[in-house]
Design a protein around this nucleic acid. Structure first.
Length: 699
DNA sequence: GGTGCATCAAACCA
DNA sequence: CTGGTTTGATGCAC
């Protein structure tokens, strides 16, 4: 298809969006551009009521984006519709052309709920035990749409959730993007921030009803029709790319990659060509190791059928050729493709699993065999379709490097931090063979910022929590109070939501080093590599480890420069004007206490310093810009003169080896009083190569 | 149309 | 720390 050549040329080398030049942001740091104070703008839930398809609350089309209407040149924005070279073009008379019923819709059907196109039908204030008032406007709906699970979703009994959550939900709009990749990102973000928020809220209630926040979040989204790609389709799911990772089954559910909450095989009933009888066809399988599937070859998967394995020994039985098992068998006969998701071990959490979408496979063969418990099971041999970008193989490669860094090739320097970081920072160049010895310009590797305290900021009150801070133990924890009464991280150290300034416990707090409110101060836990992206964007950063949304990534290290004395142009200065993170809060904490005194106060704390990573810095100085970034920056204070550290957190799940980026922001007009004119380049926009469909064209 | 059941995930506890 | 136990949401099947 028309666009494939472009696609390939890009995906071949570095997959993810190539980013623009190394650091180039020049405005000094300030906590938050006041005009866009999220806290005030989006806090009142009553004012945020929005009908679907009107992205008012959605940050994208905000004024901030407008000033850059036409970007003259180097926009390499790829139409994302091209991202899915539909697999079946030639595919040798794929019998599947006799499409499954519900897949009959064009494969590129937009996820958005067209079925909700009448506004009154969408009831964001659906709450509590009351059933949503669902109007029967079925006349408007096509047969297929009526068939989609939405109707049933809406009817389903809501799990008991706190009222405030329902209010928060009211602020959700179904993704308004026409770009499938964006809708998927938005939906996943919504899910995860909702999940973290439920964790945070449930934790304050001692009735211990707070279990399975993942299921609750998923359920809420289903009930409110916030799931996308409702129609099960054989083949790719728009917006989900091979290699994408998921941390919960529910995540795959809400983006339509794999609908069953638990079952490993998802299938759809399809009309058999001609004969008019229905039969089932598999659409996706999740191989998570529960059945001891053979995992050695990354292009071949031997998958065990479902059923038979009851918990109670006496209920065990042979597997039967029904449901998913039958569906896989039919898929084999029709030679239709099946999406495969492979489970992998989460390197940071032994008990949990990560799901890696590995693209399309075909069932090559099937047989039965006797399992260890003596009952017979179905086995299916699936082979990966050629020509797809790497999925699980990248994962496995990175896994190998993590276990044994020596196996990484094209290494220029095994640890460019010279042991300054706890984990080595690898410098590699596998992009150009001509110049393998290319190295970044000289700089000192440091892991933090040395402030000279020209003007110490006000001290914060240390907390007196005995061992670790827990909101339920001590509602008076002064650190929690600084953070609007909540601990800013989940129990496993994920940022719950972006705040103007985050307060971690400091050296004078009584709590121990294990306190949950000490995350970023503990430093990097990821194995980074700095790699050459090509001439356009220079060096970039990626990680061998998967990164979960909300996870701490790294600090922006460097030298504090007093701008009142300094003021020369500096390409490695950190600029705080980027707003790429704003949408991340869409799902989280929108009903925060409206007039948050802290937030207002923090805006006063503009610093007379900025951070320059020109002479000294860490990996962060190699982070590239993207208009749809995967990192956000978050000022974090703890002890130590009170200067906020600039900390990066992941805004979405980032698979291993995907480039890490943040939004440099547009510096034009953002330089606060006193800085204007000091940095001539600040107002000269650089062309952006991020390739995102929402690319602003420059930064 | 309601309801049961099959699925086996994730979190917790012993 | 592991392995068993518990509690589940969903969507097909009846």
């Amino acid at each position: 298809m028309e666009t494939t050549s472009q696609d390939e040329s890009e995906s071949d080398e570095q997959d993810q969006p190539l980013e623009a030049k190394p650091l180039r942001s020049l405005a000094p740091m300030l906590p938050l551009p006041m005009k866009y104070d999220v806290a005030t703008q989006s806090t009142d839930p009553m004012l945020v009521f929005v009908t679907p398809f009107r992205p008012c609350t959605s940050p994208e089309p905000s004024a901030a984006r407008q000033p850059l209407p036409k970007s003259p040149a180097p926009l390499r924005a790829t139409p994302v519709s091209a991202a899915f070279p539909m697999p079946r073009p030639g595919a040798g008379g794929d019998p599947l052309e006799a499409t499954p019923v519900s897949a009959a819709a064009p494969a590129f059907r937009m996820p958005r709920r067209e079925d909700e196109s009448s506004e009154e039908e969408y009831n964001p204030f659906f709450c509590g035990r009351k059933k949503p008032t669902r109007l029967k406007t079925a006349g408007k709906r096509t047969h297929q749409q009526a068939e989609c699970s939405n109707a049933r979703d809406m009817k389903r009994r809501p799990t008991q959730t706190s009222l405030s959550l329902n209010k928060e939900l009211a602020t959700f709009t179904p993704s308004s993007s026409s770009d499938p990749t964006e809708s998927v990102q938005e939906t996943l973000t919504m899910f995860d921030s909702l999940r973290r928020r439920i964790l945070q809220l449930d934790e304050n209630r001692e009735d211990a009803a707070g279990k399975r926040a993942d299921l609750k979040a998923g359920s809420l989204m289903m009930q409110n029709g916030l799931r996308i790609n409702n129609l099960k389709t054989v083949g790719p799911v728009p917006g989900v790319e091979v290699g994408d990772i998921f941390f919960f089954r529910m995540e795959m559910c809400v983006v339509g990659l794999h609908a069953p909450a638990m079952a490993g095989i998802d299938y759809v009933s399809a009309r058999r060509g001609g004969s008019g009888t229905d039969e089932v066809v598999a659409v996706s399988v999740v191989s998570s190791g529960g059945y001891e599937n053979d995992d050695t070859d990354s292009d071949v998967l031997v998958y065990t059928g479902q059923g038979g394995s009851s918990r109670r020994r006496k209920d065990k039985h042979d597997q039967r050729l029904e449901r998913g098992n039958l569906a896989l068998m039919n898929s084999m006969e029709r030679r239709s493709v099946v999406r495969v998701v492979r489970g992998a071990q989460d390197p940071f959490c032994r008990s949990s699993k990560i799901y890696v979408y590995d693209g399309l496979y075909r069932v090559e063969g099937s047989w039965t065999e006797r399992a260890r418990d003596g009952f017979s099971v179905f086995k299916y041999k699936l082979r990966r379709e050629p020509g797809q970008r790497d999925g699980i193989s990248v994962w496995k490669m990175a896994e190998r490097w993590r276990a044994d860094p020596v196996t990484r090739s094209h290494v220029v320097s095994a640890d460019m931090s010279s042991s300054a970081e706890k984990l080595p920072v690898c410098l590699v160049n596998d992009a150009d063979d001509d110049d393998e010895q290319r190295v970044p310009g000289r700089f000192n590797y440091v892991t933090g910022v040395e402030y000279e305290y020209p003007r110490p900021l006000g001290k914060t009150k240390p907390c007196k929590c005995p061992s670790v801070c827990l909101p339920s133990d001590d509602p008076d924890c002064s650190c929690a109070r600084l953070n609007s009464g909540h601990l800013p991280y989940t129990a496993c150290g994920l940022l719950v939501k972006r705040v103007p300034v985050l307060y971690e416990c400091g050296p004078e707090c009584r709590c121990s080093g294990n306190c949950r409110n000490r995350v970023a101060q503990k430093g990097v836990r990821l194995r980074f590599e700095v790699f050459w992206t090509g001439d356009a964007c220079g060096w970039g950063v990626r990680s061998w480890d998967p990164i979960r949304a909300g996870a701490f990534v790294c600090e922006y290290a460097g030298q504090a420069v007093d701008v009142s004395t300094g003021g020369e142009e500096d390409e490695y200065a950190f600029c705080a004007s980027g707003e790429g993170w704003r949408w991340w809060n869409l799902g989280a904490g929108l009903v925060e206490e409206a007039s948050d005194g802290d937030a207002a106060e923090n805006l006063e704390e503009r610093l007379p310093v900025m951070i320059s990573a020109r002479r000294s810095g860490n990996v962060a100085r190699f982070l590239n810009h993207s208009c749809s970034p995967n990192l956000l920056w978050q000022p974090v204070r703890y002890g130590d003169g009170g200067y906020p550290h600039v900390m990066f957190f992941a805004m979405r799940h980032v698979p291993p080896m995907a480039q890490l980026t943040y939004d440099y922001g547009t510096t034009r007009g953002a330089a606060p009083p006193g800085f204007q004119g000091k940095f001539p380049n600040a107002c000269r926009l650089k062309p952006c190569f991020c390739g995102s469909t929402s690319c602003r064209g420059s930064f």
